[in-house]
Design a protein around this nucleic acid. Structure first.
Length: 353
DNA sequence: GACTTGTTAACAATTACTTCA
DNA sequence: CATGAAGTAATTGTTAACAAG
């Protein structure tokens, strides 16, 4: 009981004076990180094919498509700094060795056993050309051949389970540019359809499998962060609930003490007594209690099961929403000595907001 | 139409590698 | 230099949706 009604209370507090709660929640919602929503959105987009992605998938990596991403990122794809950085590092994790470049007809990430496995398995042993360049606006010419060659490193696709030579998997490190590009793409679509995946992979000179894995891991990270946010929010809710519960118990004790001392309301009809949802004073308008009753009657189990959903709803609600804890307390038969037939005195004025 | 089977994609959990303090 | 922690690419197993037979 306390849980359900106090949850609403906590939300009200959040609305009123704890923007950080709302913020945390808002971040999650804004990020589209909720799994169901995310999945649905992603799958819808898979079907419908949203604007740029549709064009991207249809026309493969068109320069205009690529540039839109780049411009939004503020990246310069044949980046001199990146190139020099790559050169300084002395390796390019995705660079296709010249040997691998001669693997035409390789489709997607299905490199197969013959796709020059374990070529350049060490990130430090390759030449060091920037992967995202370069011909013209980068990515394309070199990427074409490189992508066909599977980037040179051993296949990580499940389709290449027979890649016996790659017993020890080597993990490449995506370049900052690649990561930023993927990140930017992820902001628009947290999931990819196959065409989008291939197009993106070609643009980034990665194997589609790598793009797929990146998105997969990225979704996992998003979910993890969202879980942390939710957890933090629940902690705060719990603290608020505890405090509210403590306060209610205190007030209840006071009311019990006052009960015998001040039989003030004894002459009033029980049905006219209700609780003002905003200030928690006893009022004579039954509508006040009735409006707050459904919220107060919300199942605590349900609130506990989907606290964030409830909170989101509450946050999104424009009107002040404060389930009357008193109404809840006195509405349900809980063995309290006070009932509707036993009118109660108003709470201390200090509780009125 | 109901059922089985194969394919595909997403996810969770985990492993393995890299980087850094 | 060794080491542990953190970050993350990659793998594995499971599940659901879908199409074809």
């Amino acid at each position: 009981m306390e849980l359900g009604l106090s949850l609403g209370d906590a939300v009200t507090v959040a609305d009123g004076g704890r923007p950080e709660l709302v913020l945390g929640l808002g971040v999650g919602v804004g990020a589209g990180a909720r799994r169901g929503e995310e999945d649905e959105r992603g799958r819808r987009e898979d079907v419908v094919g949203a604007g740029r992605w549709a064009a991207m998938a249809a026309a493969s990596p068109e320069p205009s498509v690529r540039l839109s991403l780049v411009s939004s990122l503020g990246l310069h794809w044949p980046s001199e700094t990146a190139r020099s950085e790559a050169a300084a590092r002395g390796f390019d994790v995705n660079r296709a060795p010249s040997v691998a470049a001669g693997a035409p007809g390789m489709e997607d990430d299905e490199e197969g056993p013959g796709a020059a496995p374990a070529l350049s398995s060490s990130p430090n042993d390759s030449g060091g050309s920037f992967p995202l360049d370069l011909s013209g606006h980068g990515l394309r010419g070199h990427a074409e051949a490189a992508a066909q060659g599977g980037g040179g490193e051993r296949s990580s696709s499940r389709a290449s389970d027979d890649d016996e030579s790659a017993s020890a998997r080597k993990k490449l490190r995506l370049s900052k540019e690649q990561s930023a590009f993927l990140e930017e793409s992820f902001k628009e679509h947290s999931t990819l359809n196959p065409k989008q995946k291939v197009a993106l992979a070609k643009q980034l000179n990665l194997r589609p499998r790598q793009v797929e894995v990146w998105f997969q891991n990225r979704r996992a990270r998003t979910k993890l962060k969202q879980t942390e946010v939710d957890c933090e929010y629940l902690k705060r809710c719990c603290e608020t609930l505890t405090e509210e519960n403590r306060r209610l118990h205190k007030e209840l004790a006071e009311l019990r003490a006052l009960k015998t001392a001040r039989p003030f309301y004894m002459h009033l009809p029980a049905t006219t007594l209700s609780m003002c949802p905003s200030c928690e004073r006893v009022a004579s308008n039954p509508a006040a209690a009735s409006t707050s009753a459904p919220a107060a009657a919300t199942s605590p189990a349900a609130a506990a099961a989907a606290p964030t959903a409830a909170a989101r709803t509450a946050v999104a609600s424009p009107e002040p929403h404060r389930p009357s804890s008193f109404a809840a307390l006195f509405a349900a038969p809980r063995g309290f000595p006070l009932t509707a037939a036993q009118p109660r005195p108003p709470p201390p004025a200090s509780n009125c907001l």
